[in-house]
Amino acid sequence: MNPYYAGILLGLVLLLSYLILGTGLGASSGIARLGAYVELLIAPTRTLASKYFGNWGQQPLKYYLVFMLAGVFFGGLISALLSNRCNIRVERGIKCSPKKRLMFALAGGILVGFASRLANGCTSGQALSGSAVLVTGSLLFLICVFAGGYSTAWFVRRQWDD
C-alpha cells in the first residue's frame, strides 16, 4: 500500500481512539503487563510486593491496553492472511546467520522493553499518540528515538547484509 495511505489510515485510527476511548494508542503496556502476569504465576507474593508491577494488582491483564495489543495481533493476522504475506521465517540479510539475527532481536527487545517502561510508552503511545496531541515529553521522545537509532545503526548493520 502507498505508505501515505497507510499513514492516513493510522492517523484516523489514532484520532478515533482519542474520540472514543479518550486516550491514544499503546502497545508496550500490554507486553509489560503480560510480563507481570507471568511473574505473578511464578512468584505471586514477590511480584505483588514489587514497587512497579505491584501497582497493577493481582489481575494486570484487566487493562484496556492489553486488549488493544491483542487487537493489534489479530488485525495484523487478518491483514497478513488476506494479502498472503504470512509465512514463518527469520527475517535477515542473506549473509547473516539466523542465530546472530535472533540475538540482535532479543537484545534489542530487552532494550525496547526497558526503555518503554522508563519513558512510559513506545513508538505507539509516546512517539505517535503523544506527539499528535503536542505533548512536550512525547515530542522529545520521538526526537531521541531517531537520535538513538541513527547513532547505533552503523554498529548493527551487518545483520542486513545480502
Binding site: 532479543l106 526497558f114 538513538g148 541513527y150
Partner: peptide, 9 residues
C-alpha cells in the same frame, strides 16, 4: 535507549 533497541531488533 529505545532507538538503539529499535535499530538492533
Amino acid at each position: 535507549i529505545f532507538g538503539a533497541g529499535f535499530v538492533m531488533s
